[in-house]
Nucleic acid binder design. Sequence first.
DNA 1: CCCTAGCGGTGCT
DNA 2: AGCACCGCTAGGG
Length: 174
Amino acid sequence: MSARIQALPSTLPITTPEGVFLACYSASGLCRLTFPSRARQASARDNPGMSSAQVRRWHALTKRALARALAGQPLSQLPPLDLSSGTDFQRLVWRALCRIGLGQTRSYAQVAQSIGRPGAVRAVGGACGANPIPVFVPCHRVLAAGQRLGGFSAGLEWKTLLLEREGGLLELRP
DNA sequence: CCCTAGCGGTGCT
DNA sequence: AGCACCGCTAGGG
């Protein structure tokens, strides 16, 4: 019986002025961040007492960085991001998103261009929607052509809020 | 504004 | 293999 201390993904809450986010950690880092939702998030807190020292350290970084992001400030140090859940294409897109700086935006077409798949515009939208770590992997900085807001799976209010906080806000047409 | 066609990746059968 | 989604886009009423 291997005393394999299985580092089960643990999900921990983060209380912010905007509501309670949930951060999920795998053995290799932050693997998911979910927006507050009016729907119950009660069950999501699995084993708060069972998180390892490392997870608690990562969580401290996540909390601080999220607070800064919501204030429109540059991120502080992040925990390692575990993006292994994605396909090759999705990870390619997510890496590209990480190169969009604070206060900047790109179009889905520009992102597609930047990863050398100029035709995969729509697929880029799909990959953005599959982004497991929004806010830190800034999928909200990708707009539709003509500075239109485009979509956001977690709800367009979040996309708008994040863009407003980052100040890179122009006028967008709904 | 609306509609349409074409697009690439993903997931389900 | 096929098919139906899509956070898209360009082009044409």
